[in-house]
């Protein structure tokens, strides 16, 4: 029971990195399929396609960021001794990691789908690149809000 708090906190950090990372991988994969289809016919669109394909990758970075935050909070970065964490505090850290884990996971997949649609849009109308970026960027808003939620909640957790 001594390490239950730490385990719960690490579980939260792992989920933040894991789910957001999986979401980003799926999202980038979806957009990548679309980009490959367009580039087979028109290799000159590589630049535009790459930008749109990369958009769903940010959720994975947000997840990693929260994981670092959590590890830093637990004193596990820098080689020092781990902080003493009660099960209640561990649970608080786990809960703090959930917004970025789940919103990151789900939003990355949908952002990938929107990016894929935008890639198909620029295949026919290359001049609409600006609009094509805005559409998947709208999905990003909610991933950013989830990141902020996780950061604020983590900052609010008081370790003894």
């Amino acid at each position: 029971m001594e390490y239950l708090g730490l385990t719960l906190a690490l579980f939260g950090a792992a989920l933040a990195s894991l789910l957001a990372g999986i979401g980003s991988a799926v999202g980038i994969g979806i957009a990548g399929e679309s980009a490959a289809g367009v580039m087979t016919e028109d290799p000159d669109k590589f630049g535009s396609c790459l930008i749109l394909q990369a958009l769903p990758g940010t959720q994975g970075i947000y997840g990693l960021l929260i994981m670092f935050f959590a590890l830093n909070k637990l004193g596990l970065l820098g080689g020092g001794e781990a902080a003493l964490v009660t099960w209640n505090q561990g649970l608080q850290i786990l809960a703090s990691c959930m917004p970025v884990a789940f919103v990151g996971w789900y939003s990355a997949i949908w952002q990938g789908k929107t990016s894929a649609a935008s890639i198909q849009m620029i295949a026919k109308k290359p001049e609409a690149m600006g609009k094509a970026i805005i559409l998947p960027a709208m999905v990003e808003t909610y991933a950013v809000l989830a990141l902020l939620s996780s950061i604020l909640m983590l900052m609010g957790v008081q370790l003894g």
């Binding site: 490959a36 289809g37 016919e41 198909q120 026919k124």
Partner: peptide, 15 residues
């Protein structure tokens, strides 16, 4: 090959 790839390629071919 997936339909995502196929449809995107068709969009480019429509030009």
């Amino acid at each position: 090959m997936s339909y995502m790839y196929a449809v995107a390629r068709l969009r480019a071919m429509e030009n």
